[in-house]
Lab assay of single mutants.
Amino acid sequence: KVMEIKLIKGPKGLGFSIAGGVGNQHIPGDNSIYVTKIIEGGAAHKDGRLQIGDKILAVNSVGLEDVMHEDAVAALKNTYDVVYLKVAKP
Rank of each mutant, 00 (worst) to 15 (best):
D54G: 01
A88E: 15
I18V: 15
D66P: 04
K77R: 08
S32R: 05
I52A: 14
H26D: 03
K55N: 04
V22D: 06
P28F: 04
P28K: 15
H45K: 13
V59A: 09
N24E: 15
D66Y: 10
V82H: 14
I18M: 13
T36G: 05
I8A: 09
L7M: 06
Y80K: 12
G23D: 07
G63M: 14
K1D: 03
L76W: 02
E65P: 03
A74V: 11
Q25H: 07
K9H: 09
E65Y: 13
K89W: 04
P11E: 07
V67A: 14
V87A: 05
K1R: 03
Q51G: 14
M3R: 05
G48T: 06
V22L: 07
T79R: 06
L50V: 09
L57N: 04
R49C: 10
K12L: 10
V83D: 02
N31F: 04
T79H: 11
R49W: 04
D81W: 04
K1F: 05
E4G: 07
A58I: 04
L64Q: 04
G10V: 05
I27G: 05
S61C: 13
P90G: 09
S32F: 06
I33S: 02
Q51D: 10
E65D: 14
V73T: 10
V2H: 05
I27T: 12
Y34V: 07
S32D: 09
K6C: 06
D71C: 11
M3N: 12
V73D: 13
M3P: 03
H45C: 15
L50Q: 00
G41A: 09
S32L: 03
L50C: 02
Y80M: 09
I38C: 03
L50A: 01
L76F: 13
A75G: 05
L85H: 01
Q51F: 05
G15H: 01
V82D: 13
T36P: 00
D30Q: 06
L85T: 01
N60C: 04
S32V: 02
G20T: 02
L14S: 03
V35A: 03
V73G: 06
G53L: 04
V2N: 15
A58S: 14
A72E: 01
V87S: 03
A44H: 01
D71M: 09
D30R: 04
D71G: 08
N31A: 06
F16S: 01
G29R: 07
D66E: 15
A74F: 07
D71R: 13
A58Y: 10
G29V: 03
L76R: 01
A74W: 13
D66V: 05
A58N: 11
T36R: 06
V83S: 06
G13N: 06
G53C: 04
